[in-house]
């Protein structure tokens, strides 16, 4: 094996290990942050700063009875939680964390990301469907509608960035931001992508497929133990993914003042968004399902189209002049 292969393997496993370590850490982070914003302490007993609560949670999930309801479609029921983790992890393949730290630089990186996040919808649909439970089914139907709808605006909102870069490769996109982050010219695209990203990860306030006050736990009502754990972890990796994508697409990826290494800048930006995600959860109520769909199709879709047309127009105008 040559050095390139070894370093490639190192990067691959490094990214994988990093993600899998940070994702449960996010659980702790979220609980501590929520507590902070609610005048509490949050988990602070197990280990330093209560960090070991992550371990305790994981152990608990492992030791829970791995129960499959007798009325469920067993194979699909087992498969569904795996899909969410696989698709989200695969998306990370195209994320450039820093120069050279990327698993695979594809020239269609952005499309790959969109494809994978669409695939994620399957896990919700199949999970809810195979549970054979009316609440789970309702949750999964909402989830499917939500995910497919917001997929559209998400894709459209990115097109401005693609137009400006002229490439689907994420490295190219980052490098195009060396002097100016796309958040400035593509502010509308940024806002739309952020909203669509929250909806894609079905995070609060857009956790309509779960909506525990209406649907028990939505599509994963029947899940317990590690299968539930996979949905759980999938969600947190999803947050990281969207945060990373925002960083890559609009905040200049690893670029930043040189007193910190590029990777650090990337991580700081990414965590900034993760904080933002959690703050959203702490402060905003959940919209109604129809409000969400209306907002998507009646506001976000025209806006994203407008963004695309204006960006395209400006680029055309700039190219011709």
């Amino acid at each position: 094996m040559d050095d390139a292969t070894i370093s490639h393997l190192l990067i691959t496993f490094g990214v994988l290990a990093g993600l899998l370590l940070v994702a449960p850490g996010l659980i702790w982070l979220e609980r501590r942050l929520l507590a902070l914003w609610q005048d509490r302490y949050g988990p602070n007993r197990a280990g330093p700063f209560g960090l070991l609560v992550v371990l305790a949670d994981t152990l608990k999930l492992f030791f829970k009875e791995d129960w499959i309801p007798p009325f469920a479609d067993k194979k699909v029921f087992v498969l569904a939680p795996a899909i969410v983790v696989i698709t989200v992890l695969l998306s990370f393949v195209v994320i450039p964390f820093a120069p050279g730290i990327i698993v695979a630089d594809m020239n269609i990186g952005l499309l790959f990301f969109l494809a994978m996040s669409s695939m994620g919808a399957y896990s919700i649909i199949l999970g809810g469907w195979s549970s054979n439970n009316k609440y789970a089914l309702l949750g999964s139907m909402r989830g499917a509608a939500q995910l497919i709808s917001y997929e559209v605006f998400m894709g459209l909102s990115l097109m401005g960035v693609v137009l400006m870069t002229g490439s689907f490769s994420l490295i190219d996109i980052v490098e195009a931001q060396r002097y100016q982050w796309f958040i400035v010219p593509q502010f509308l695209g940024f806002v739309i992508f952020l909203i669509a990203g929250i909806a894609e990860t079905h995070r609060l306030p857009f956790d309509i497929p779960e909506a525990e006050s209406e649907l028990i736990a939505g599509f994963h009502s029947e899940y317990s133990g590690m299968k539930f754990g996979l949905f759980f972890v999938g969600e947190y990796i999803g947050i990281m993914l969207i945060s990373s994508m925002v960083t890559v697409l609009f905040l200049g990826g690893w670029y930043g003042p040189s007193f910190l290494p590029p990777l650090a800048w990337f991580i700081i930006k990414m965590f900034g968004f993760i904080f933002f995600f959690i703050l959203l959860r702490a402060s905003l109520p959940r919209p109604r399902y129809d409000q969400l769909m209306e907002f998507g199709w009646k506001i976000l879709l025209p806006l994203s189209l407008l963004n695309l047309v204006v960006t395209g127009g400006i680029i055309l105008w700039m190219n011709t002049h």
């Binding site: 902070l36 914003w37 609610q38 005048d39 509490r40 302490y41 703050l279 959203l280 702490a282 402060s283 905003l284």
Partner: peptide
């Protein structure tokens, strides 16, 4: 929405109500 997010954020600096 922005205002409520800001207000929630400010709670970070309030006194804790939890009794240890």
């Amino acid at each position: 929405i922005v205002r409520s997010m800001w207000l929630v954020f400010l709670h970070m600096f309030k006194k804790r109500v939890t009794i240890q």
